[in-house]
Every structure is written in C-alpha cells, then in structure tokens.
C-alpha cells in the first residue's frame, strides 16, 4: 500500500493520529495535501451535514457545541468539530481555547476536535477549515461543526462553508444590533438566544422574531450551561437539514461552495506569491500604487507561467 492509501485508510478507520496528521498536512499545504484531498470519498462528504456555528465572542458557542456533541453522541452519531480562533496580528500566535469547554469529550473515540487559528489569512483559513471538515466527514463524522467568531468579514466566508448556519447570541451585549448591522443575521438559518437563564433573554427573542418575520429563519433559546433547549435546537437543525436536502438547496449550495473554495485557494496562493515578490524587491518601492500593482501582477503571472513550462 502506498503512503497516501495508508493515510486514507487511517482516516476512514477514524484513527485520530492519522486524522490529526492529515489536517496538519492540509493546513501547511505540504505535498501530501492535494493527494489526500483527491482521495477523499465524496460520498461521505455529501452525506455529512456541515453546521456553521458563529456569533459574537463569549456568546457561548463552544459551551453550546459541547452540549450538541453530547446530544449527537447519545444518538450514536460520530461528531467532528473545527474550532477557529483569531490569531494575534502582532505575533501571529494564538490561544486556541474553545476546546476547554469541550474537554468532557476528550477521550471519546466518536468525537474529533481540531482547533485552528486564522493565521492572518481569510481565504486560506476557509480552505483549510473546509478541508478539515471533509477529512472529518470522510472519517464518518456527521455532523461536522465549524465554530467561528462572528464580527467581521471572516465569518461571512465561513457562512459559505456550511450547509446550515447557526448564529448564537446572548442577552445583554447589544450584540444583536451589531449583528443585524453586519447583515449576519440575514445569513443565518437559525438564531439562538443562548444564556436564556440571564435576564433579557425573552425580550431578545421577541426582537429577533420580529426582525426575522417573513424570512426563512428560526429563532430558539438555549441555556448551554444548564443544558436547556439543546434537544429543540438539534431538532430544528435536523429538520432544516432534511428540508434542504429534499428541495435540492443542499446540493446547490455545495456546488457554490466548490466555486468559492477554488476562489479562496487561488486568492491565497496569489496573496503569498505577491507578498514574496513584493518583499524580494531590493530598492525602495516608489510611484503610483496602481502602476506598481499592475507590474507586480504581470511579473508574478509571467514567472508562474514559466515555472509551469519547465
């Protein structure tokens, strides 16, 4: 058996070491990455539902996912989680802490959790997160859950990665308004008011129901710490998944995902190439930025073509 076949077999068998290694290979874009992705069973990827769970920092996303994992495990499902945290713009480092809330599942062989940092890349991150989700799906995870913080542009890309988008809010932040402004709520299939044990939850639910009137968006409430509302949320998610598959929305979105994945990968590739080229410039850069951009693009594309010919 060649090496890649061995890796693919390990993934299918759910070997955590192989899965961990394979995700790293893809994150770092090493030479095995493409072969692994090509060998992934598309049937598994199509069978799995990818849930995007997003929302403002501290809303309780990880705690809620912890509860959802328990729910899915009781129903005998294998679950994968990709938890994304922002990296520090200064050092490039990151503290990936979502996992703390899910440590209960640390040794459960039916749960695979992988933390990722944004590493200052938007397109690349989405590509890596999407690929990690595929590997998890290939190992039999269904659903695969992707957690991201939702405050800027990044999560809109994440929205493009998920079949179902769950936006988590909590009372008392004023985040509801922020989220509405950012248009995030419009992207969501489900709005969850978490921390329903806090004052103000009911009012927020009323607000959200009003704001989503006439739209295909469900509102529900949970208390992740008290484990309330989890079953309801899981049922809502399950119903949406079923409906999307029946109406063909699911497959349509998957096709779009492929397009955006290709775009993300291309942009990420270009970004590093452009940056390298720019950094390699000996003399100080002066002149009209637009001209420089044109020249830079030309140079990068020419070297790219030449390296292809060779």
């Amino acid at each position: 058996m060649n090496e890649i076949d061995g890796i693919l077999k390990g993934i299918r068998e759910g070997n955590p070491r192989t899965i961990g290694r394979a995700i790293s290979a893809i994150e770092e874009g090493n030479h095995r990455a493409a072969a692994i992705l090509q060998g992934i069973n598309e049937g598994c990827v199509l069978a799995a539902t990818i849930l995007g769970i997003t929302g403002p920092p501290g809303a309780g996303k990880s705690t809620l996912i912890n509860q959802l994992i328990s729910h899915y495990r009781i129903h005998g499902k294998r679950v994968g989680i990709v938890a994304i945290d922002p990296s520090s713009p200064v050092s490039g480092g990151a503290i990936l802490g979502d996992r703390i809330r899910m440590m209960r599942h640390a040794t459960d062989p039916g749960v695979i959790i992988r933390s990722m940092s944004t590493r200052g890349r938007v397109g690349g991150l989405c590509a890596a997160a999407g690929s990690a989700a595929k590997i998890m799906a290939c190992s039999g995870c269904n659903p695969v859950i992707i957690e991201t913080v939702g405050v800027g542009h990044l999560e809109i890309d994440i929205v493009g990665l998920a079949d179902i988008v769950v936006f988590v809010l909590a009372p008392g932040f004023g985040d509801d308004v922020q989220a509405m402004k950012a248009g995030l709520i419009e992207m969501a299939d489900v709005l969850v008011v978490n921390k329903a044990d806090h004052a103000g939850a009911d009012a927020l639910i009323v607000d959200l129901k009003y704001a989503t009137q006439g739209r295909d968006c469900q509102v529900c409430s949970t208390s992740a710490t008290e484990s309330r509302g989890i079953e309801d949320l899981a049922n809502i998610i399950g119903n949406i998944a079923q409906r999307k598959r029946q109406t063909g929305q699911f497959i349509q979105k998957r096709e779009k995902m492929l397009e955006s994945e290709i775009l993300h990968r291309a942009v990420e590739l270009m970004r590093t190439k452009l940056k390298d080229r720019l950094m390699a410039q000996e003399e100080q850069i002066i002149g009209d930025p637009q001209d420089i951009v044109r020249k830079l693009l030309e140079e990068v594309c020419v070297t790219q073509l030449e390296s292809k010919k060779r």
Binding site: G92, G93, I95, L96
Partner: peptide, 13 residues
C-alpha cells in the same frame, strides 16, 4: 507568553 512569541497554543485548562 508563547502566543506572544508566535506559537499557536492549545490551552486545555
């Protein structure tokens, strides 16, 4: 400190 030094730190508590 490790984060500030550029590491990705999985903190488990």
């Amino acid at each position: 400190s490790l984060r500030d030094d550029g590491f990705e730190v999985i903190y488990t508590g």
